[in-house]
Design a protein around this nucleic acid. Sequence first.
DNA 1: TTGACGGGTGTACAACGTACACCTAGGGTG
DNA 2: CACCCTAGGTGTACGTTGTACACCCGTCAA
Lengths: 244, 244
Amino acid sequence: MMAGRGTSRTRLSRNAVLGAAVALADEQGVGGLSMRTLAEDLGVVPMALYKHVSSKEDLLDGMVDMIVAEIDPPLEGQAWKTTVRSRILSARTVLQRHRWARQVLETRTTRTPAVLAYTDSFIGMFLDRGFSVDLTHHVMHALGSRMWGFTQELFDAPGPAAGPSVAEDARVDTASGSAQPDAAQLAELARRFPNVLRIAMASAHDDGVVGRGCDDQYEFEFALDLLLDGIEGLHARGWTSART
Amino acid sequence: MMAGRGTSRTRLSRNAVLGAAVALADEQGVGGLSMRTLAEDLGVVPMALYKHVSSKEDLLDGMVDMIVAEIDPPLEGQAWKTTVRSRILSARTVLQRHRWARQVLETRTTRTPAVLAYTDSFIGMFLDRGFSVDLTHHVMHALGSRMWGFTQELFDAPGPAAGPSVAEDARVDTASGSAQPDAAQLAELARRFPNVLRIAMASAHDDGVVGRGCDDQYEFEFALDLLLDGIEGLHARGWTSART
DNA sequence: TTGACGGGTGTACAACGTACACCTAGGGTG
DNA sequence: CACCCTAGGTGTACGTTGTACACCCGTCAA
């Protein structure tokens, strides 16, 4: 008796759990997503989830991975501007579809492989079209808040994510300091995320291609001035959005 | 016995509570801020806080108000660009000083009077320098993510915040729909936040000064294209940040 | 047949936000 | 002076959260 509940007792899986979590967050918001509500949603006891997800943090990381996968791949054979533009707009529609995502992303500290892969591909759209590493670096910072809020902490401590699934016990942990990634990890990193590495290397030593290393303040002002200069131009020529 | 704890038992106040909360969040992060830890910090029992703060939500709103007050007022008698630029940079240093703020702002739904006042003054920097309502509208959207993340939900449902202190039971509440602000509230609103109102009115009926009403998608693309055009220019002329 | 093991269960605990009843010090009024 | 009213701090208690730990069962390899 009490065998299942209507539907046949199909086994759970990490994907099933993540999928249900995303669906639940979509309709209830992130506030309505607890291990208990999610478990009930799956017709299972709360602790069952921990066989597929190591913690709620891990669950949220997995959910982010899922929606990152929804972002369209970059267009092929188009001008950089077209490609970047459509990619960003695709990311935006994904974030619109999952309105909890912005809030969740804001709290995430671990970069999972899926997120790194997206970032890497994103950087590639510039580098592959002949952008300099220097300019690409600044452009990524400028676009960050549009892509979504990954800002300064992108390039320091790239260690955490190397495994084929989710990093095991990886956590960035305030002031650990001793987490030096070993050579094997670095090599794996270089193979899978070459563009990230190029950018990271360039900003590591300030004698490199990038003028003054990675200065948050500078990055911020770079993006800001870009906006302001554009605005100034519109204002000067009496721009208006109306067809008039 | 147990009268106070070293220091004389000074009475609490809303400001004292908020100040302690900000200080605690500054050093512990928002995760380390609970009603219990905050109470202990103040040498008081948790429930005592509720005499000065109606809920934790209210506490967070108050904390936001506190740091908004730290942002410098706009410069007088300067070009709009100088004024806006320095104001945004001031806001940025405040957010750097209180690193929990970004995360908290992302979850806030109620706009308190202090926040509205800041926004209003911000809009004024453009309007007072001769910017059109139309352009100012779009510019505010474009700068939003830089100022901080108030985005589309700025202009719909302006009701909540009218009282001299914090709005009493105001909450935006999903799909309430029946919360029509009465005339008195509107008048008060118009008196204290005239610029907000002008922008809001303009986007309310699409025959107004703003071309197509307030279309989120359009706003997003507006800001995006501003950035992209600027980037394109830099790329074309081989821009680099190095002194070389 | 057996034994290991992947995966669902049950109980339990600490920490959270906060409702509710209570007590108490201090000050305005008779 | 006696009064009591009230602003503000206290104590207890409840429901909800994440999750540790022990358990148990169904499936498959040997």
